[in-house]
Design a binder for these strands. Structure first.
Lengths: 158, 158
DNA sequence: CAGTATCCGGTGCGATACTG
DNA sequence: CAGTATCGCACCGGATACTG
């Protein structure tokens, strides 16, 4: 999209902005990172993340309201019923966001010791990476191969 | 990674957290979105985004400090020299983060009118999407196909 | 264990105004 | 055009305490 084109449209109806409204607050994506790593319970999140419990309460509520996590009772044999937070399908699909942050961080802000986590294909064990491809199966593409064009929902400036 | 494994490691040396330290403040990714769409100048960012100019100043400085944007003088014929902000290579590689947010937002928070922007393969014109694949070329993978394992830089808890 | 409630100091952000 | 300065408030995170 050329500059003059961009200036013809507003920033309303932006999926990136809407995603960030939900996911962009501090701690939210870190909570989800731990959810992907397998954490489920309030105290586990609080302990591992080291964030304030009040903040955690708020973020978990938001995530449940947005149907990214679901709060479900569970029962450990021999103890009383508790609640846990599990990723929904909507939540699971956030993973590429974390993956993109992980890859960029690994590449540009790496720790000399190497990555703290390896993402592998379960089964074959090979490392996984994020790639951009087009519907005609060209790829992997870089940002220089792609073009952003106004779509059907673009709002022209008044 | 199973829960018990996760609890054996700290959250230090996390590339996701480091990326978010740089990119996670409000407005930062929206500034970069506009940079990808072609904006270059202070007042363009301020006008399109509608964020406070002080905030914009701060974010641009951070992004320049991090070598995500570079501030370069440029000269329009007939007017005096000005500065513009351009994405560096490090900056260009942030695009998958925005792409992931865009795809998730398109899928889960869509506007009834449709997406405001279409990302296409320049040249062939087909829509572009983000996919996860492994080094053995299995894919596209979903999050359920992948496994997160402690890497060489993982820090065991004391 | 799984939260909620409260207080408190710091900071991020929005709004506004000013400058070269 | 490209910022800087200032102000006020909301929110954020830390600490602590309380509840079922």
């Amino acid at each position: 999209m050329a500059l003059e084109d961009r200036l013809r449209y507003t920033t309303e109806n932006c999926s990136i902005a809407r995603s960030l409204d939900i996911l962009g607050e501090k701690w939210t994506l870190l909570i989800l990172r731990e959810a992907f790593y397998g954490l489920r319970r309030f105290d586990e999140f609080a302990r591992i993340l080291g964030c304030g419990r009040a903040v955690l309460t708020g973020r978990l509520h938001t995530l449940v309201d947005e149907a990214i996590l679901e709060r479900a009772p569970y029962q450990q044999p021999g103890s009383r019923s508790r609640f846990e937070y599990r990723l929904t399908d909507k939540g699971h699909e956030i993973f590429p966001v974390l993956m993109a942050l992980l890859e960029w961080g690994d590449r540009w802000t790496a720790d000399p010791a190497g990555p703290a986590v390896d993402i592998t294909h379960r089964g074959c064990g090979q490392p996984v990476s994020l790639t951009m491809t087009c519907a005609a199966d060209h790829g992997p593409l870089t940002v220089r191969d792609i073009e952003a064009k106004p779509g059907p929902g673009a709002r022209p400036t008044a």
